[in-house]
């Protein structure tokens, strides 16, 4: 937006007096700079409030800083300490478990979209209902599931009522289980977006190809695997990128409101650990080091995802 006055001014009537050649030259010059001018406002904001702070976080990670006095440079101390910090390692492991669950994040909306695509009775309504959790704030979800998942809460009540009492659990108080519950809740709150995406993609599907495959005697499963899947691949990639992001950014608020990292440290994630170190412990430097390690992990995961998608594409 801020670039518009410049562009207009340069092409404005004041310049007409210089004659056609000058004007054309100027236009060309402006043309060359147009993309930069268009990028400028976003770039300025990103550099000022994201890239520079990111660099600062890296800088702080080599310091000891309590937030009061000036940061003291301490070299790699924070990182060597991190290597021995068992809670941090546990937290990072949880991040990786979350990442490992991504195929489920893809599969569930994919198959539900298939279900809706048959235009079952009330599919529009389902589409609306499935998206609803994406509107709920983490505070709402935290309070709600805190109530539903109580040992004597509605979920266990339901399980017992339908004779599945054996499946009743202390959902939020079982170290091995609670992280899974948190992941399930996040999937629950995002799958509707995926359904929406896949559903519209299916609507644009090339039906002729499908018909042709059918005429060739392909089974439904074969069609699904060899025709439909490949057609949807770009959409799946798009969704994959979105959920890789979500796997690193969407958990903090829910953990903050629902489990506070518990029971014990079993639902600590690296960014929750970072927050605790920085704001409960006042160890800003150490917290920044956690952030840097987390960034490296994210870089690796993102790189791996991209590589995987490229590889798949080449296979296609």
């Amino acid at each position: 937006m801020s670039s518009s006055p410049e562009t207009h001014a340069l092409g404005g009537p004041a310049l007409d007096r210089r004659g056609p050649t000058a004007r054309i030259r100027l236009r060309r010059a402006v043309g060359r700079f147009t993309p930069w001018l268009l990028l400028a406002p976003a770039a300025a904001l990103l550099v000022w409030l994201l890239a520079y702070p990111l660099g600062d976080a890296v800088h702080l990670s080599f310091t000891n800083w309590d937030g009061f006095s000036a940061p003291k440079s301490i070299g790699l101390d924070n990182f060597t300490e991190l290597a021995h910090d068992k809670h941090f390692k546990e937290a990072l492991l949880h991040n990786l478990i979350i990442v490992a669950s991504l195929p489920i994040w893809i599969a569930i909306p994919y198959f539900i979209a298939w279900g809706l695509h048959t235009k079952v009775w009330g599919w529009r309504f389902f589409r609306f209902a499935f998206f609803l959790p994406a509107v709920f704030s983490p505070v709402v979800i935290g309070v709600y599931y805190g109530m539903v998942l109580k040992p004597d809460g509605p979920l266990n009540g339901l399980l017992r009522a339908i004779g599945l009492g054996g499946l009743a659990h202390e959902w939020l108080n079982q170290p091995g289980l609670t992280l899974g519950v948190v992941i399930a809740i996040i999937i629950w709150s995002t799958f509707g977006v995926g359904v929406l995406i896949f559903l519209s993609a299916l609507a644009n599907l090339d039906e002729e190809l499908v018909e042709a495959a059918h005429v060739d005697g392909a089974s439904r499963w074969q069609i699904q695997r060899h025709v439909v899947f490949w057609q949807l691949l770009p959409v799946i990639e798009f969704w994959a990128i979105i959920i890789v992001i979500a796997s690193f950014t969407a958990f903090f608020p829910l953990i903050y409101t629902l489990t506070q990292g518990g029971p014990g440290f079993s639902t600590y994630t690296a960014d929750y650990d970072l927050y605790q170190e920085a704001f409960a412990g006042g160890n800003m430097g150490y917290a920044s080091a956690i952030g840097v390690v987390l960034l490296i992990v994210i870089g690796l995961v993102a790189g791996l995802t991209v590589a995987l998608l490229r590889w798949r594409r080449r296979l296609a």
């Binding site: 000022w48 890239a51 520079y52 990111l54 600062d56 690193f248 950014t249 903090f252 927050y275 993102a302």
Partner: peptide, 19 residues
């Protein structure tokens, strides 16, 4: 742009606060 997307907000909380 894509790289910055996956940035967990908690990581830059302190330096953004400083800015």
């Amino acid at each position: 742009v894509v790289a910055l997307m996956a940035l967990p907000p908690a990581v830059v909380l302190i330096p953004i606060f400083k800015v």
